[in-house]
Amino acid sequence: MSTAAKTVTAPGTDQITSFTFGELLSSRTVIGQTLKELGETHDNLWVLTPDIGATLVEFRDTYPDRFVDVGLSEQACVGIAAGLANEGNIPVVSGMLPFLSMRALEQVRSDICYPNLPVKIVGTHGGLVGNGGSTHYAVEDLGLMTSLVNMTVTSIGDPLMVGEVLRQSMAMTGPLYIRLAVGKKDKVVYEPGSVQIEIGKGITAREGTDLTLFAHGETVSQALDAAGILAREHGINARVVDMFTLKPIDEDLILRCAEETGRFVVVEDHLTYGGLASQIADVIADRGIRLDGFRRLGIPQVFAGFGEDTELRDKHGYGLQATVDAALAVTA
């Protein structure tokens, strides 16, 4: 779906006039523009950040009374957001996920999830991205966040989806976690309007019958590329599911994919345990499903080292070739 190059206009944004379909766009820019747009329709929308606000400038300048940069204090940032939500506001905390998901974890859990407040946490550096080393990779975050009662957990690759999820989230009464990769250059996966985006529902990004490749975030486009190779070079028809909501997981879609394709490969930029593979494995076990093949690709139990994201994925066994190989293995 992502290969045709054409120019289209993104819905709901007037600043982004066009982009080349299948190419790169900044999720951070989309977030900044979407928040500015939502700030107008929601006068109780606040944006908070611990010193990661470069793309929030438009919101800050338009609604200075609803913008807070607390500096380097993630715990206070999340606690303050909870205090604002307690007063009937919709706070969005924007920052880097390694720190929001770990340093401020207890504030997320006890200040936001316990009273079930509508605080959104949106951030970058999910997975082995940015070349910052293991202090700056969020690789446990989905395990941590999916463990939290009341928390809805998403991981998004397509930059335009981020805007749509933010828009939908305005109606949510509880907390939401939005995970992005670097957020500077993200591949536009879906032609606007071509897929229905609904929090809690997976997206079938490519139809197929021989196996299902499950992915989220940046690995969706990798899975699509793998599916293309499998079709062209091996005659294998892989379905690709973008399971961008990890919690609540779309059980119906998992059951349908099990019935219709029988084999699963899960590829994610996260530790192999605690992320999407674990969520899917739970559904399989709980529902007593017998699959003909199951593989989980992701980060093994290592601190991953430095390198570009594609290099690190190859090194740790969840890059494009590894995805193709895993698909061949489960369909052999």
Binding site: D65, V68, G79, I80, G83, L84, N86, S110, P115
Partner: peptide, 24 residues
């Protein structure tokens, strides 16, 4: 009660957020 508390060190950030709302 206004907020759920128990884990120490959480009250002042929460109160700060609530005060920020009032102030602004």
């Amino acid at each position: 009660v206004e907020v759920s508390t128990g884990s120490l060190g959480h009250g002042l950030p929460l109160a700060t957020g609530m005060a920020l709302h009032g102030k602004r």
